[in-house]
Design a protein around this nucleic acid. Structure first.
Lengths: 351, 351
DNA sequence: CTGAAAGCGCTTACAG
DNA sequence: CTGAAAGCGCTTACAG
């Protein structure tokens, strides 16, 4: 009993060393320890070295909770991915995983920690990171289908939190998004120059997210300029994206619609469309050309590989973080447009 | 000047309300506010209601940094994804994205926040979350190639941090991993029952990660039991995974190796192998059968779709968190084996 | 260049 | 059931 020095059960995890312990060992004051380890240029190199050695010897690490309490900064950026209710783990659009990966590294590069969460239904909606001082700012992205979630984050934003979103459900917020109009135009040109006479847009135009509407706008404009009539085939947003593509094609064929080209609102819809077309004996790209949007990985593996419009993801992430930082600093920043490029693959390359 | 009440620049962001402000408005003491909002059953419902109303009126939120400093708990679990050096943003094995998604939701479900980071080279390696009191525990996963990173996290673990890993570079750690041996056996049986006479394993057996060796062990055992000779084709780990598969097949063909079945260490290698086989005119599954491991999304889209061994990812995530929580509580926990199931698709279904 | 002291905003024994 | 008080471990004016 006497062996553990009267510490009882706490014997294994001894109490952590504090800056006072380091100060004592280094023979300086606690404030000097703090300054030395924070890299304050005012302390002499000699002192700093002594402090560092002492800290190392004691295996001392700064308790960031104390730092954060004292400074009011957390150096954390929260990232929320909004999922469809109940879809938390599966079936997430892989595009968001790539965007998330890029965002996490942009956050690291900016010297922050990323606090990530996937949120779906009301029970686990919580965007008040800044109110709780768990983060200095917030990046939100995810499916437009979850209306409830977006309403919650609109509230968060209106409460004065620093928040930037990917996409655009509400016009009056801080957004970063792809050049969807430009991408839509590219898609139309790709189809036209490959000789597709009757191309249609497969996607939603009534979605909460302006992105899809914008893609159609660009497509529509380029089609009209080429003397074509822009046609839109509305999808059923309650289905999975693959199934949206399949059922759209099913509908088009069964109603006898005349078409030989498809611009899908996203790659997954495009892949679903390809599946349905091929299942019914249509050849791609000979009979029908297909263009998607996003640049997801799977697009390279389908046969034929999917032609798509791909946003510059690293830049998208960088812009999100940059814009958020400006917001946190109370500065203006209006960079929000992420350029896209057309990736030509087999699915829309006739001849 | 007098208008902003002498607050100067701070006029826009007024000082946050504290529990003292709430106490004053509710007419109770600050300690009662703390208890009431923490849900301490000792406070009367009447008082709690009064406090809640006051808190709402003042738009009060608890400053978690103060809570964390006081309690010593953060209720945060850090998750680190180790990437190949320089590969931070792209080319990540998509399997890790799915696992990460599952882990994040398991962490949420357990009532913690997830602090996620992607780490690659020495400059941004930092696993000392617990030392800095930024998290209560740590989950590590990622590529076996990054030896430097794993060495770092070994140090972290040895410093006494609560840490659980996915995979198994070092035997003496807390791991959760797939039933790789069982999966390897399944793969062998799938190939054998489909009539493939000469199946080989394409993957590394010298990797830091025991997982790949285990997959070969299972494969090897089942092959021997069926009277076959287990053959292994070592890949070049410096290449991308797709390229590993391609170059392995190239080597097999060019050296005149006799084979009609491939069990690849992971799906991406399998897909690369399929690409090379098809480019050389081999038909899958007629001439060669291919089985992968992981169950990544792209496997469903390649043609023919990839037969694979898929770990139960939601369970994997749950086990990682469960094991970590046990570790944090100083309890023993030996659940670490994640069951796998065989997904039969076209790539290994002869006839 | 360094030190003494105040204070960030909570939780939690202790006392009643 | 509630209150007064101590203290978690830092940073940062202020003084020298």
């Amino acid at each position: 009993m006497a062996i553990d020095g009267g510490q009882g059960k706490r014997a294994t995890r001894r109490t952590r060393p504090t800056s006072f312990d380091v100060a004592e060992l280094a023979g300086v004051s606690q404030s000097t320890v703090s300054r030395a380890l924070a890299g304050d240029p005012v302390v002499s190199e000699l002192t700093r070295e002594r402090v560092k050695r002492a800290a190392e010897e004691l295996n001392y690490s700064i308790d960031q909770n104390a730092t954060r309490l004292r400074t009011g900064r957390t150096d954390v950026i929260a990232v929320v991915v909004i999922c469809r209710p109940g879809e938390l783990k599966e079936d997430m659009n892989p595009f968001y995983y790539s965007l998330l990966g890029n965002i996490c590294s942009a956050i690291s590069a900016a010297g922050y920690d990323a606090l990530v969460s996937f949120q779906d239904r009301a029970e686990n909606l919580n965007g008040f990171y800044e109110s709780n001082r768990r983060a200095d700012g917030l990046i939100v992205m995810g499916t437009a289908e979850n209306v409830e979630a977006w309403a919650h984050f609109r509230e968060v934003s209106e409460s004065g939190a620093s928040m930037v979103c990917w996409g655009a459900p509400y016009p009056d917020q801080n957004w970063v998004r792809s050049d969807n109009v430009g991408g839509g135009e590219m898609a139309a040109h790709m189809l036209i120059t490959n000789g597709y006479q009757n191309s249609v847009y497969v996607g939603s135009v009534t979605s909460l997210q302006r992105q899809y509407t914008e893609r159609f706008e660009g497509f529509s404009r380029a089609m009209r300029e080429a003397g074509r009539t822009p046609v839109i085939v509305q999808i059923d947003p309650s289905l999975s994206r693959l199934e949206q593509g399949r059922s759209a094609v099913r509908g088009m064929i069964e109603t006898g619609m005349k078409f030989d080209g498809i611009f899908a609102a996203c790659d997954q819809i495009a892949i679903g469309a390809m599946q349905e077309l091929q299942a019914r004996g249509y050849r791609i790209p000979e009979d029908v050309g297909v263009v998607g949007f996003d640049g997801i990985n799977a697009g390279q593996h389908v046969v034929p590989p999917l032609t798509t419009i791909e946003p510059d993801l690293p830049l998208a992430a960088e812009l999100l973080v940059k814009r958020l930082k400006a917001l946190m600093a109370g500065q203006a920043n209006d960079e929000w447009l992420v350029p896209v490029r057309g990736i030509v693959r087999g699915s829309a390359a006739r001849r």
